[in-house]
Nucleic acid binder design. Structure first.
Length: 721
DNA sequence: AGCACGCCGACT
DNA sequence: GTCGGCGTGCTC
């Protein structure tokens, strides 16, 4: 009888499963999680589908063990393959993301408890008597809890176990969360809301894959609407997954979920303790955990009976994984929905252009919530900085200063938004014109007055702020150019010496706890004026916020990013929408040098349709997604020369293909990320073009990366570095 | 000589 | 991704 062989995919950078011998007496089927030897170590692997590759050099090594836990379901195996094919990543690397919960694959440690079982011990002591009194309730106690309740040491309890009076019992693991109640606190919905809610609930009831784009301005009640769809899935006993873009945003989501369903959902993100990760993973796999709110990685949880996926704030760039396997969690959520055969809901006040295009083409159901429920929209105006700008060296225009003064005088809060950290984005020498640039990147060094440094925002390179010009030696000649939020806060403090100002930016915040604490301060009215970066655009609601001032709406519009307009539109819509969120109206003033720019006009007029129509037309003209296909090839290495030469060699090896254009690499690296110099090649192709096939052929023919050179592929990228 | 570090390639 | 092998170059 021939020895039986199985294909096993291992979580390393390999394309195909390896073949292993099955030891006598072990039966394995696809999906089983196994322990296999790999080189000098042993790793987890998953028995894969199909025939094992019999052409193996060297000897076959045997599978060491089959794990008792849940197998990886077929839909999950297809998910791994799909992502690997789409992102051109090795399958093993994608599998790795699924096996990143090592605790969950070991033997499950039962919780041991003790219970009164046998006759009293022959030797009774006072301590033993007290323990037996407490344990007399017949319930199972943990050893420490019992000892504590009886006021004795754990050794007394252990003595009674020895004596046979107490017996050890294995408890079922403690549930991660209590099950949510679908109808705990059903919300009264407006007519528009209930129409959308019914459509979503119908999709859940009908089962099968579908995608719905739920679109409605801030405050229109999207959450309440998709809660109804979740309620329907929960009522059917199925599991729901809600994706949220950032951990810092989950707190308020959890609270709203609890108010609606009576308990918190399980959380999933990188900050969980190993123990909680394990329990959550197992609970999801057993089907006991019914609702999960999580970050990108929650996509790889082994749901036993998934009934619905919701992607909240679907346009958010945080959904994109930028390192390792580069993928968009929003898109992969749709893929998982299709492989699992469950409905997907994408929710946003400012949907991505791709999702809008899919909705318009009829691939997604489009559900709109037209009204701002229970409040008016803010009054938004542009301030033309060419005619109404401030005096030289200042950045707050007279109309904005007047509005801040009036707001604070009225006992309300104001917010100044500028998406630029630090004090000044450029420092130059008045004497010789020298500009401080990053030695690694083609970027200016940003002055951080608080830290007394000049820092590169791409690679983190920082130097102490010099006193004299390093080029000509002139004294007192260095001048900061342009504002960051530190400079805006400084100007505000000069203009309004008596108000309480709070700065919020990622580099000034140490932890999520600290961020939450700052948000609470704002909420309690302990602050009059908030000066912040995009950190203030999302998340927390500020109930007392009456005025939003956008210091420079043109930031971000002039970058080379094909999604710059979309991004700016989304950001400005979000940040202006914070004015008067829970009050009547509210105001927003937008400082700009280009009030006729379509993005600014769309924000001021509130005409979202005009923006989307224009943006689609422009994308179509340029052959950009969703009308064309785009990929970014990132080549990185420790040295700039090495990265540049490989990027150039790659560019020379482009195979001829009709309807595809490869751009780049530029002369200087695009950025330095974690000490690695990154060059980028852009591939533009027709929508119908087989981009993956082209890329594979290209890389097969091109020189292989050597040494520290690494390549990654970002297909249909959501953002550009 | 002995060891630290970095690069390279194999892993069934 | 991770490990061992092996080269280079530095130090005791």
């Amino acid at each position: 009888m021939s020895q039986s062989i199985v294909p096993v995919l291992t979580p390393v950078a390999v394309e195909a499963p390896y073949s292993y011998a099955v030891p006598d007496g072990m039966t394995l089927s696809p999906g089983d999680v196994v322990v296999v030897p790999l080189g000098p170590r042993t790793v987890l692997g998953v028995v894969w589908d199909g025939e094992p590759d019999r052409i193996v050099r060297g000897k076959l090594r045997p599978v060491e063990a089959k794990l008792a836990g849940p197998a990886i379901a077929p839909a999950m195996r297809r998910f791994v393959e799909w992502i690997a094919d789409y992102t051109l990543s090795p399958r093993g690397m994608v599998l790795r993301m699924m096996l990143r919960v090592p605790e969950a694959f070991g033997p499950q440690m039962p919780v041991i408890a003790v219970r009164l079982a046998g006759a009293p011990p022959e030797r009774m002591t006072e301590a033993r008597r007290r323990v037996l009194e407490v344990a007399g309730d017949g319930l199972a106690w943990s050893k420490t809890a019992l000892a504590r309740a009886a006021g004795v040491g754990v050794s007394v309890v252990e003595g009674l176990i020895q004596a046979g009076t107490l017996q050890c019992v294995a408890l079922p693991p403690k549930p991660v969360v209590a099950p949510p109640e679908p109808d705990f606190a059903a919300t009264a919905l407006t007519q528009a809301q209930s129409g959308a809610a019914e459509a979503l609930a119908d999709a859940v009831a009908a089962g099968g894959f579908s995608v719905s784009l739920l679109e409605g301005v801030t405050g229109s009640g999207k959450t309440e609407v998709y809660f109804e769809a979740m309620s329907e899935a929960l009522r059917r006993g199925r599991q729901v997954l809600v994706m949220v873009p950032e951990i810092s945003l989950t707190a308020q989501f959890l609270a709203r979920f609890e108010a609606r369903f009576g308990t918190m959902p399980a959380e999933w993100h990188s900050g969980l303790t190993p123990k909680l990760r394990e329990r959550t993973w197992r609970g999801v796999a057993s089907g006991e955990v019914k609702a999960v709110a999580g970050a990108r990685s929650a996509l790889f949880l082994p749901f036993a009976d998934l009934g619905l996926i919701v992607v909240d704030e679907e346009h958010d760039p945080a959904y994109k994984q930028e390192e390792g396997v580069i993928y968009s969690a929003r898109d992969m959520a749709v893929v998982r929905g299709s492989l699992e055969g469950v409905p997907v809901v994408l929710s946003s006040a400012t949907p991505s252009v791709e999702s809008r295009a899919n909705a318009e083409r009829g691939r997604y159901r489009h559900l709109r919530l037209p009204d701002r429920y229970g409040a008016r929209l803010p009054d938004i105006r542009a301030v033309d900085m060419r005619s109404d700008g401030p005096e030289r060296g200042r950045f707050l225009s007279p109309p904005l200063v007047a509005a801040i003064a009036a707001t604070i005088a009225g006992g309300e809060q104001a917010l100044l938004f500028l998406n630029r950290r630090g004090y000044a984005p450029l420092t130059l020498c008045r004497a010789c014109g020298f500009r401080f640039e990053c030695p690694n990147c083609s970027a200016w060094l940003v002055e951080h007055r608080f830290r007394r440094q000049l820092a590169c925002h791409h690679c983190g390179h920082a130097i102490p702020r010099p006193v004299n010009c390093p080029n000509c030696g002139a004294e007192d000649s260095l001048v900061p150019c342009g504002p960051g939020i530190e400079r805006i806060a400084e100007e505000a403090a000069e203009r309004f010496p008596d108000i309480r100002i709070l700065m919020l930016s990622s580099d000034l915040i140490g932890s999520i706890a600290e961020l939450r604490q700052r948000f609470t301060m704002i909420e309690r009215g302990e602050v009059d004026l908030v000066v912040g970066t995009q950190l203030v655009a999302k998340g927390h609601n500020f109930p007392n916020l009456a005025l939003v001032g956008v210091v420079d709406a043109d930031v971000g519009l002039a970058t080379g990013d094909p999604r710059a307009a979309e991004r700016t539109f989304q950001l400005l819509q979000q940040v202006t929408g914070r004015a008067g969120r829970q009050r009547d109206g509210g105001r927003a003033l937008i400082q700009t040098f280009d009030p006729d720019h379509p993005v600014i006009k769309a924000i001021v007029s509130g005409d979202r349709e005009a923006f989307y129509a224009r943006e689609m037309e422009s994308r179509e003209r340029q052959g950009l997604p969703p009308f064309g296909r785009l990929a970014a090839i990132l080549v990185s290495a420790r040295s700039q020369d090495e990265a540049a030469s490989h990027a150039k060699a790659l560019a020379r090896a482009v195979p001829p293909a009709d309807g595809v254009r490869v751009l780049g690499p530029a002369e200087a690296p695009l950025a330095v990320v974690r000490g690695r110099h990154r060059f980028r090649l852009l591939v533009k192709a027709r929508r119908t073009f087989d981009l993956q096939g082209f890329l594979r052929a290209w890389f097969d023919a091109a020189p292989k990366p050597r040494g520290s050179v690494r390549m990654s592929v970002d297909v249909d990228p959501l953002s550009f570095l």
